[in-house]
């Protein structure tokens, strides 16, 4: 019984919060353009679904494309860094500059240089790239010294050492980077969409929020926000599951 309560507690609390919100709005008769009730938001989400769904697909496409590029790019660069120190010393400052400069400040410049789609994608890529890169470098460097010596003792080639030793050793770190990068890619995509403010067919969720704000369509703003949150959660959960699946039997983090 106690365990049941413990399991249900987070859900109950969430339901209570939503319920309190609904009741407050109804009892105080707050106007929907100030604070819509959860039921109104849900209704809006359903009625505006075609519009929101199309926008969500645009944002998702940007996010995953950026993440895919960041994974391959980050891992490839990490391999170069781990192999040649001087490459790391020469290129790492660039990566740091890109990382520490807020993406919202870079976005307008990118929008000047690039097509809107490409600029948005680039922004999402830049923020997702760094965690994948730095985590992968860390992972490739954290290989057990003795294992490296063992491989040398048995005359392993560079390729064997990479495939059988360095990549598996770096996997937990890489997955950690991907988990952070996934969330950041979504943020990067949203931020760039806001900066771009582009309308029309290729508009993402962030643009729908701005558009709804101009029209004081607050319920739709909330519905779009909820979709963004759910997307972020879905990305995080997906990568956590992948991580568990791949590491369950051997890595301390998943035991």
């Amino acid at each position: 019984m106690k365990r049941l309560i413990e399991k249900l507690a987070p859900w109950l609390l969430f339901a209570a919060a939503i319920g309190a919100w609904e009741i407050t709005v109804r009892v105080r008769e707050i106007a929907p353009y100030i604070l819509p009730a959860p039921s109104v938001i849900a209704a809006t989400a359903i009625s505006d679904w075609p519009l929101l769904w199309a926008a969500l697909l645009v944002t998702l496409r940007t996010t995953f494309l950026a993440l895919l590029m960041a994974s391959f790019g980050g891992l490839a660069l990490a391999l170069l860094f781990a192999r040649w120190r001087w490459v790391e010393r020469s290129l790492f400052p660039f990566a740091v500059v890109l990382q520490v400069t807020p993406i919202i400040a870079i976005a307008p410049l990118l929008l000047v240089y690039l097509e809107t789609d490409a600029a948005v994608l680039t922004c999402a890529f830049i923020v997702a790239f760094f965690p994948v890169l730095s985590n992968s470098v860390l992972g490739l460097r954290s290989v057990d010294r003795n294992l490296v010596e063992l491989y040398e003792l048995y005359g392993a080639s560079r390729w064997q050492q990479l495939r059988l030793l360095r990549l598996p050793a770096a996997l937990p770190y890489f997955l950690g980077g991907l988990r952070i990068g996934g969330g950041l890619a979504l943020i990067g995509a949203i931020v760039a969409e806001i900066a771009a403010g582009s309308a029309g067919k290729g508009a993402g969720l962030a643009f729908r929020i701005i558009e709804a704000a101009y029209r004081l369509n607050v319920p739709r703003m909330f519905a779009a926000l909820a979709l963004i949150s759910l997307t972020g959660i879905a990305i995080y959960v997906t990568f956590s599951l992948v991580s568990r699946l791949l590491l369950a039997r051997w890595h301390e983090s998943e035991i």
Binding site: D144, L150, L164, P168, L171, H251
Partner: peptide, 10 residues
Amino acid sequence: FQDPTLMPWA
């Protein structure tokens, strides 16, 4: 080696 030095993923 002094430690077992096994690959934990294998």
